[in-house]
Amino acid sequence: MDLTLITESVPKILSGIGITFQLMLLSAILGLILAVILLLMRLSGKWYLSWPAQIHIYIFRGTPILVQIFIIYYGLPQFEFVRDSIFWPILREPFGCAVVALTLNTGAYVCEILRGGVLGVDHGILEAGSALGLSAQQKFIYLTTPIAARIALPAYSNDFISLMKATSLASTITLMDMTGIARTIVAQTFAPYEIFISLAIIYMILTWVIQKTFGRIEKYLSHYVNP
């Protein structure tokens, strides 16, 4: 075990944390928006909205995320219409491809998590809303959303951690996130053991921070369960 190698390489690896964070936060935000859209499509009760959402979820939960990244990065540019489209500036860059892949993937998972939350809302509460004259939209905004959010949060925080770890796959399409940098250092130093252990520890610390943060949010949202 070469300690100086570790102390030298950790700062280098950390210089990629910005990319890791950008991938994580962008995909998490866009993925959450996508998940809500997919959820509304699924709950619409209209087959022409519900089916596309279910097909999307089926595809992105049914295939490895690494394969999805490869298809988007290597596969899509083969098509003339992709290169001519307004999305080309995004899909031309590995960063854009990684964000697109992670967003589509996490959106599918989070949609199912949110759906679990919505289905977990006590039916009687919604009936009370109806009886008081609230419209379907008002019930969704003021009753379903806040209650479902609390139910879904623990599962959502797990998905968020999965997403954080999945950002490391972006290194396979040349991105210099923390994993990408670590791989470069290994290629130069031939010391995979020290470098990858250091990298693993950094990811573990990140996971810990995310867990703590979500724990706080959960506690806040649950104030009415354990006041």
Binding site: I125, A128, L132, L134, Y224
Partner: peptide, 28 residues
């Protein structure tokens, strides 16, 4: 015009008592 009271109360669990009473007044 028609109020309803249920066997299982069905209060809105995430709102205080007074907010439970204000919600429909405000929205409806």
């Amino acid at each position: 015009e028609v109020g309803m009271v249920f066997q299982s109360f069905n209060l809105f669990p995430h709102m205080t008592i007074v907010k439970n009473l204000m919600l429909a007044q405000r929205l409806v």
